[in-house]
Amino acid sequence: MTASTKKYRQLRTDVIKHLYYGKMLTLAELSNLTHKSLPLITTMVNNLMADGYVLEYGLAPSTGGRRALTFLLNKEKQSYIIAVAMDQLVTQVVIYDLLNEVRIAAELFPFALNGDPTNTITLIEFLKNYIIRSGIPLEQILGLGIGMPGFVNAAEGVNHTFFKIEGQGNLKEHLTKELGLPVFIDNDSSLIALAELKFGMAKERKDVMVVNVGWGIGLGMIINGSLFRGHSGYAGEFSHIPLSQSNKLCACGKQGCLEVDTSLLVLVERAKLQIKNGMKSSLELSFLDESKLHGDHFLEAAKAGDPLAVSIMADAAFLIGKGLATLIHIINPELIVLGGRGAIAGKMMMAPIEQAIHEFCIPRLAEHTEIKVSALNTESALLGAATLVIENCNFN
C-alpha cells in the first residue's frame, strides 16, 4: 500500500467517524475537524456519496451569509453495528444503523457472570442466535462491540475476571473466530464514559469523571478530552478504593473496598434485611415481582421517595461522594457525570454526594467541579459498545 493510498483511506475513515458523531456537518466543519483543506474534503465527501455512505441533508442554519449544505451518513447503506452491554446479571444486545437508530429490537438475556468456564460458550450461543434471527448477512455488519465488567484489557482483548480462554488465544480473537465478524471488547465503565464523551454531557469537555453506578461502582476517566486507561489498561477501579469501615470481604479478595457498602446488590440485601426486621416499605411488595431485577425495583423505589430506599441510597451516595472528593483532589475534573443503571435515581443521589464533597474536599477544588446526572441513562452502555466498533473500523 502506497503512502498516498494509506492517507486517502485514513481520511475516508475520519470523515465517516466525524459524521457518525456529529450527525449533520458542513464541508467547512469537516475541514476544521480533520484539519484538511476544503477542496480535499469536498472531493472525499463526493466519493463517499458515490459509494452510498453519505447523503446531502439540507442547508445549515443561516449565520448571516450564504447557507452551506449539510451532510449526514446514509442509514440505508446496509452497514450495521451490533452493540452488547453486559453487567453481572443481564446482557443486552441491539443492532444499530450508521445513525445509531435501532434496526433490530434490543433483547435482554439473564446471564449471571461467574467463574464458570462455560460463560464464553453461553455468550457465543446467545449472540449467534440473535444474529441469525436478525436476518442481516454478516458481510453487512461492521463489527460487534461488547462492554463487560471485570479487569478488561481492551488492547490485548482479555477479560481477566470473567472470560478466561484457556489455550484458545484471547477473548477478542476467540469471539471474532466463532462469530465470523470483527469483535471488540472493553470494560463497561470505560464504554459508558466513551458514550458520554461522544454523545452526552462530556462532549467537548476536557477532564471528566463518569461514575457507573450499578451492581458495582465503576469509573470511566476522561483526561484532556480522551479516555484514560492508565499504564496497563486498568485505570478507573473506583469501587476498590478502601473507604469501607466494615470487615466484609470484597469480590476482589480484599477488605475495605467501597463496593462492599455501595453496590446495588448490597443495597438490595440491606433493604431486605430491614424489611425482615419490621421496617415498612413499598419494596416489600415490589420484591415479590420477579419480572424485574430487585436492584431495579430498589432504584425505582428510591426515585419515588420510598423512605427505606432513600435512606439506604443516601448512605451509599455519601460514601461515593467521599470517594469522589479524593479523586477531585487528584484529578481536578471540570465535571462528574453520574451514569449507568443507577442514573435512574441519580437526582436523589446528588444531595448526599454533594454533601460529602463539600465536607471532605478543599472548597477551591470543589467549587470548580460540576456534578450532573447522565441524560443517556441505561442506553449509554449500548452506545458505548457501538462507538467501540466505529473507533476500530476502517471504512475502505
Rank of each mutant, 00 (worst) to 15 (best):
T326G: 13
N159D: 14
S286H: 12
C257D: 01
A271C: 15
V152H: 00
L11Q: 13
G342W: 01
F238C: 07
T70P: 07
A112I: 11
L69R: 12
C361W: 03
S291D: 14
A112H: 12
N170D: 15
L335N: 00
T120W: 02
L283N: 09
L40Y: 01
S4F: 09
V94L: 06
A83M: 06
S62C: 12
F109M: 02
D261W: 05
H35R: 13
L299M: 09
F199Y: 13
E166W: 05
C252Y: 07
V211P: 04
A106E: 15
I353A: 07
L335S: 01
K17H: 12
C361Q: 04
D261S: 09
N32M: 04
A106T: 09
E391P: 11
G220I: 10
A60D: 12
P182M: 03
V93L: 14
A316L: 03
I223E: 05
G233R: 07
R229D: 00
F151R: 13
K254L: 14
N100P: 00
S79D: 13
H18T: 12
F238H: 03
I16A: 13
M209R: 01
V211N: 01
K6E: 14
M350G: 05
R133S: 15
K198T: 06
L55F: 12
M279H: 15
L327M: 14
K75A: 12
N392K: 05
N332I: 03
G214D: 08
I336A: 00
R270K: 14
Y96S: 09
T91E: 06
